[in-house]
Structure formats: C-alpha cells, structure tokens
C-alpha cells in the first residue's frame, strides 16, 4: 500500500481490540461487577487468608472444642477443637478448585460433543444416543462403583489428596456434560442453516475453521450459562459426595464436608452449618452473576445498550 493510505488510515479510528468492548459492557452490568468483586474476595480469602490467619486447619485442640465465636476463634471450633475459620479457608480452596476444574472438564466435553453432533450429521445419532446413555445412568451407584474401583490406584500414584481430587473432578465432569451437549447441539443445528455459514462455505472455509470462527462464537451464550450453572452444580455435587462420605478423606476439609460435620451439632452450634452454607451459596450466586454479565458483554447485539 502507498504511504498515503497508511497515513489516511491512521486518521481513521484505529481497529480496536474486541476485548475492550467486552470489558466496557461488562462494567455496566452492576450485578456482574459485584459478583466479580465478591468472587475475587472469596479467592483472596481462601488462598491468601491462611497467610494472615496462621492456625493450621488440622490442628486439634481438644480442650477448646465446640466453642462459639470468640477473638481466638472468630467462627468457633468444631467437636475436636479445630479452628473453623482456618477450616473454611482450607475447605474453600478445595471446593473452588473442584468446582472450576470439574466445570471446565464438563464444558469441554459437552461443547465438543454438542458441536460435533450438531455440525456433522453423520455423527449426530451416535453422539446423541451416547448422551442419552449418560443421562440415563443412575449417578449414585455409578459414583460408588467408580470410587470403589479407582480410589486406591489413584491414591497410590498421585498421593491421597491429589488422587482423590482427580477422581472427584473426573467423576463430576463425566456426569454433568450432557445438558451442555444437548443445548449446544440444538443451537449448532439452527446456526448451521444460517446464511452466513453458507457465505463462509462459498469462500471455501474448511469445517474446523467454520466451527471455530462462526459456530463457536455464536453458541457462546448458552455455553456461558451452562458454565456458570456448572460451577454451582459441581460445588454442590462435591458437597453431596463429601456429605455421603464418598469424597475427600474425613479429616480433609471441604465446604461440603464442613456442612456434613456441622449437621450433627445443628442445635448446639448452628453457626457451624451457617458459615459453610453461606460460603457455598454466595460463591455460586456471584459466579452466576459473573456469567450473566459475561454473556451480555460477549454479545455485540446487546453491547452498547
């Protein structure tokens, strides 16, 4: 190009990175901002909190058991005298890590299956029957069998905590990708018939780039919604597993495990249930709001309203 055009081009609006538009729109969503703020606060609380509050979550002080809130133990202690604040931080680390990774796994599997099934008609029947198969599986017996079969080998090769973490993430991920796959497939089926896909085909776009450039960005909204709901379900499923005693070892705190332990003392120390319950609910709520804001921000049609 000539120098003149380059000069001219600079006087026009520079091409702007799309993510700045996304951020501008995200900022206007109050709920999302508050949610993001709260989520960052929770992350700081569980990851940096132990640096400030240095009591070990496993330290047993049997003489201080079942105490209510005090300056020494702001959230009280459990029946073995372990500090609840420290346990809430340690439990949050596990719960949030499980929630995010399990959701990520479910999302990747679900989106992959959904896009492939929707885009390639030949694979549609097979993949959707597979999805139905997974939906029809009775989750609880399946979990029991998986955990019985794989707990010990995984523990042996990755250590007790990492091993059970991998197992739980895998189990939650593998049993919760189906709704995403179905939603994504439906959207892809509709999108595939849109004229802009035909337009892309008319310039010879190969299928993989068609999916990445035209299909995936347009199914982002439903994926986003399932992602945020997915984090919530993953945290809750992990809690349920721990509650049933199938999850992490009993001395290893997670929010679900804290809830489970607290139920026995509901009458005497209700705060032992309230704190982890509140932590789970508020984290899930904030993630949902973030997802809501992100979905709006990623859609150019809503942006700028």
């Amino acid at each position: 190009m000539t120098e003149l055009t380059t000069l001219e081009a600079q006087t026009y609006q520079k091409q702007r990175n799309q993510w700045w538009d996304v951020w501008d729109q995200f900022k206007t969503h109050k709920g999302a901002l508050i949610g993001a703020g709260f989520f960052i606060f929770v992350l700081l609380f569980v990851y940096l909190g132990p640096l400030v509050w240095s009591i070990d979550s496993q330290y047993i002080d049997i003489r201080a058991r079942n105490q209510g809130p005090s300056w020494a133990h702001p959230m009280g202690t459990d029946q073995l005298g372990r500090d609840m604040l420290a346990r809430l931080m340690a439990g949050g680390r596990t719960s949030i890590a499980v929630g995010l990774t399990a959701m990520g796994l479910a999302l990747i599997v679900g989106t992959f299956v959904g896009v492939i099934a929707g885009y390639f008609r030949r694979l549609d029947g097979v993949l959707m029957r597979l999805t139905d198969l997974f939906l029809a599986l009775p989750i609880l017996p399946l979990l029991l069998v998986i955990i019985m079969l794989f707990r010990d080998p995984l523990r042996a090769s990755f250590g007790p905590e990492a091993g059970i973490f991998i197992l739980i993430v895998f189990v939650i991920g593998i049993t919760s990708w189906m709704p995403t796959a179905r939603i994504v497939r439906g959207d892809v089926l509709a999108l595939k018939e849109r004229e802009f896909v035909l337009a892309a085909r008319s310039i010879g776009t190969p299928p993989h780039r068609m999916v990445l450039r035209h299909i995936l960005p347009n199914v982002l909204s439903p994926i986003m919604v399932s992602a945020t709901l997915g984090i919530a379900t993953a945290i809750i499923t992990e809690s349920a597993l721990s509650f049933l005693g199938l999850g992490f070892p009993s001395d290893f705190p997670t929010w679900g495990r804290l809830l489970f332990d607290g139920t026995d003392w509901l009458q005497r120390n209700p705060e032992r249930v309230i704190w982890p319950g509140l932590a789970i609910s508020l984290t899930v709520l904030s993630v949902n709001y973030i997802g809501d804001g992100l979905r709006d921000a990623l859609d150019p049609r809503i942006r700028g309203r």
Binding site: F196, L198, R213, H214
Partner: peptide, 15 residues
C-alpha cells in the same frame, strides 16, 4: 463469489 439475498442473515453477528 456470491452476494446473498438476506443481508442480515449472511453476516456473522459476532464479527
């Protein structure tokens, strides 16, 4: 190349 009938539908709304 091709020019399409419906100018709304033939452009990817996310690009």
């Amino acid at each position: 190349q091709m020019v399409f009938q419906d100018p709304q539908a033939c452009l990817n709304p996310r690009m």
